[in-house]
Design a protein around this nucleic acid. Structure first.
Lengths: 337, 337
DNA sequence: CTGTTAGCGCTTTCAT
DNA sequence: ATGAAAGCGCTAACAG
């Protein structure tokens, strides 16, 4: 902890504590002369205000929290980058919490945040968040909250998302245009709206092109990576009805697919084409065979944080609930070759 | 902010504030009966202690800070993951600050941290941190600090690093064994110890194999990515004396090199081989031509945080300064083909 | 323009 | 076993 406080500063200057405090906050009540003296002395004594005393008194933490499933993930790393940028610009501190896709962690973190440690919360749900009671409970404290990317479906709240349905549609159509007839889809979770929407896009694209959806080609993945690899491997090892295209709803599953293809010597893109939601920024170079749907992750972070600050600063109308949707982009590579 | 506080709880229970406080902290002074009542009521009223009041009183924030150059970077994302894991386990909160490789940001952040907002600080310096006065100044407040990966050379402080010299040596030798005769080296910064050590390894490996170091092949990169791309492009476009191998001291520069090679149609690994420090976990699949030196980033994060907590909990001897060195691993791929 | 005072909500002696 | 009271460092009425 810092050791020079207002009291010591005041003593040294022969002023009252409150005058010093006001001088430091550049109050109009203090003479320019005094302000200068105070500032000089504060500098000299290396004064740093105690943030807890200030927060306690002002009921303001100058801090926001971000709750995300993981950080070793290109999408979330970029989003966090954008969030941090806005926070820093606003002079706010950023508390980071990782749920590691574990609902229990998410619940505990959210509950903890009810203590008033932060002025606002940014959240992206974990894959198996089914119940939303903890979110409702936090919401009821009146604290500004913004959800991004992985948002709750059963709750009316401010969100920043991508055009998931359209992207799923485009991705699938991309494979169809590349000549694929049997297109599989890898789903991340049963609960996430992003998955639902992306898969709806997939279904509708198949429908549009009169391709019958084969339920065997829709793989429901879960938190157990081994299991997912096996599911994918089984599907790709089938003698007949092996898919010739795969739409992965998240990057992680595309990478798993890569491993499997590598493992069973399935050639990409000759024997199977893959398209995925992905923010692997270097993918274009490293993987000429992987077309991707890339979300504007950094912008999503910035937009989410900006929206949150508008709410914190009450610059948004009382009962208005913003739903911001950004567009993702299809980055085609020679997937059709 | 939360709305039920100790006072309300006490009123509701017909107890004094201090008794309630003690009951919640499970003090031996309180009867089991009372504790149960208090706990039940706290639960019922959804009581959450005010962290600022507590921190103010106890002079303890239960929070640590991590200051890193960037987060959209595999190494730092993984390190942060490890740090967060340890912090969470200890029941600590994690404030995240990004300097974006800007010394001014680093300075301001470090100065800010002197206010006592956190109980400990983890730092990885930014590439152009030359002066260390801000670090010394923070250190003088007595707050526990641990540096990881990018550590200050002119300061005696606890650090967690990788075997940079040995890794640089091994990486260079790997290229030599693969048949390279003219090996270039891409340096991130003039100031960072990691760069110095990795380059010393490079130099010594050349020396060992009686290859004369060509100063033209040592590229000093900086914060300007355009400039770096040009420097690399110039070197690789040379008609004569074009290198046949490149050692990139950080992942980012390897990726830049990829772009350039792609741009000027230089075939990897036929015409030029690349090895790099990198934590691109998917590189093995996406880029069969890139051998890498991979640091145990997650472990570095965990070790750093653990060391910091030992210091916070005073479980380390007073005047002992830990220097932990972890080993990186060379992941060979068919770079020699 | 400057100072006095009363808390913010919690922890911690020190009584009882 | 419980309570009263002081105070962490700061801010913001309110006085002067």
């Amino acid at each position: 902890m810092s050791n020079t406080n207002l009291k010591k500063l005041a003593e040294e200057l022969g002023l009252s504590i409150s005058s010093v405090s006001k001088a430091l906050r550049d109050s109009y009540e203090i003479s320019a002369e005094t302000k200068k003296r105070v500032l000089a002395m504060a500098e000299k004594m290396n004064y740093q205000p105690n943030p807890f005393a200030s927060s306690l008194r002002r009921k303001k933490s100058v801090t926001i929290a971000v709750v995300i499933p993981e950080i070793a993930n290109n999408f979330f790393a970029l989003a966090l980058d954008g969030i941090q940028m806005v926070a820093q610009q606003k002079g706010y501190h950023l508390l980071t919490y990782l749920t590691h896709e574990d609902y229990k962690n998410e619940e505990a973190t959210i509950r903890h945040l009810q203590g008033g440690r932060v002025d606002g919360v940014l959240i992206s749900l974990c894959r198996d968040t089914e119940s939303i009671h903890h979110l409702v409970s936090l919401h009821e404290t009146g604290i500004p909250m913004v959800f991004f990317d992985r948002v709750p479906e059963q709750m009316d709240c401010p969100t920043v998302t991508t055009d998931d349905y359209e992207s799923g549609f485009k991705a699938t159509e991309h494979l169809i245009n590349a000549g694929c007839k049997k297109i599989a889809c890898l789903s991340l979770s049963n609960y996430l709206s992003i998955t639902h929407k992306r898969m709806k896009g997939y279904e509708d694209a198949l429908k549009k092109h009169a391709i019958k959806l084969d339920p065997k080609l829709v793989i429901q993945c879960n938190n157990d990576n081994e299991n997912n690899l096996n599911l994918i491997k089984n599907m790709l090892s089938a003698k007949k009805d092996r898919p010739d295209g795969i739409f992965a709803t998240v990057e992680k599953l595309a990478i798993s697919t890569y491993y499997v293809c590598n493992d069973i010597k399935l050639k990409i893109p000759q024997q199977i084409k893959i398209i995925s939601f992905s923010n692997l920024r270097t993918a274009s170079l490293l993987s000429p065979s992987l077309s991707t749907i890339t979300q504007p992750a950094f912008e999503i972070g910035k937009e989410s944080a900006s929206l949150l600050f508008r709410m914190i600063e009450k610059k948004t109308f009382g009962n208005r609930i913003d739903k911001i949707v950004l567009k993702s982009s299809l980055i085609e590579r020679n997937s059709s070759k």
